[in-house]
């Protein structure tokens, strides 16, 4: 009996510990969800808490989101468009660059790679002022291109793709060359299919970055109906606060699709979001 309890006790304690932590960590999201079923005026009057009259809980706030009386639906679509374009461009272009680092030796490679690391180290916030001036000169203020252009090649992705491809022996390329593939044919027809798993992980990494990006889209986008979702949600936090219905339900609805995707593609999410982690 003592033998059994000595084995079971650590398990029980550990699981108890983690259950408590998980419950604490999920409280903010549970609060958000419960509050999204209440009228926004409740929130203004009583604050965000769990006291909810379940009899009067309803999906009214969610219906409001897509009623066309506000710009929420626009923001959602804008975010989807920006994220989709950014992910496709960043994946393709960054994988090209990573491929050149992994598979070729050429003059200037060392310098170029140092530049990649340099960009990785410097927060973009440092250069938002000149970047904004540039975008203004190009005429891309209040334009999706203004959000997307500075982020078409992502150093983090280059780094990751390089790591991924370094493992593939270069003889492989020579064999393909003998088979008559051109340099670009090898990349497009052989390497890209080989890189599929890394595309999934990096697509999610970049998708999350783009979907959640706040400061730069806030600076570039001016008109209300062109904002992306995070910028739009922030704009609802007016001091007069009659927008709390949309704010809370909208915040909730911004998470739900990601949660569903996470449930389906967990492996790639984890891989993507911890991509920088040291692997051996």
């Amino acid at each position: 009996m003592a033998e059994v309890s000595r084995k079971v006790l650590p398990t029980v304690l550990l699981m108890l510990l983690f259950t408590v932590i998980v419950v604490i960590f999920l409280i903010p999201l549970a609060l958000l969800f419960v509050s999204s079923l209440r009228p926004g005026s409740d929130l203004m009057r009583y604050g965000l808490n769990f006291s909810i009259d379940w009899a009067n809980a309803n999906l009214h706030n969610y219906r409001l989101l897509f009623s066309g009386q506000n710009a929420y639906f626009n923001w959602y679509v804008n975010s989807l468009i920006v994220t989709a374009i950014q992910v496709v461009l960043a994946l393709f272009l960054s994988s090209c660059v990573g491929y050149s680092f992994a598979m070729y030796d050429y003059k200037g490679k060392g310098i170029a790679f140092t530049c990649v690391l340099l960009v990785m180290m410097v927060p973009t916030e440092v250069i938002i002022l000149p970047l904004y001036r540039m975008i203004t000169k190009m005429g891309f203020v209040d334009n999706f291109l203004g959000i997307i252009l500075p982020y078409i090649v992502i150093p983090m992705l280059i780094f990751f793709f390089r790591q991924y491809l370094v493992g593939i022996p270069r003889d492989f390329l020579d064999a393909a060359r003998v088979d008559g593939y051109s340099e670009y044919g090898i990349f497009l027809k052989i390497m890209i299919p080989l890189m599929k798993p890394s595309f999934a992980a990096m697509g999610i990494y970049e998708g999350m970055q783009s979907w959640n990006n706040f400061l730069w889209p806030m600076i570039v986008m001016r008109s209300n109906n062109k904002m992306t979702l995070p910028v739009g949600l922030q704009s609802l936090m007016s001091p007069y606060g009659n927008n709390y219905d949309i704010l809370i339900a909208g915040a909730c609805f911004a998470i739900i699709p990601i949660l569903i995707l996470f449930a389906c593609f967990q492996k790639y999410f984890v891989e993507g979001m911890t991509a920088g982690g040291v692997k051996g």
């Binding site: 932590i21 998980v22 999920l26 999201l29 995070p230 998470i255």
Partner: peptide
């Protein structure tokens, strides 16, 4: 996975 969920929310939310 459960502990990972908060990372999925945007800073704004």
């Amino acid at each position: 996975s459960l502990l990972f969920i908060p990372a999925l929310t945007s800073v704004v939310v």
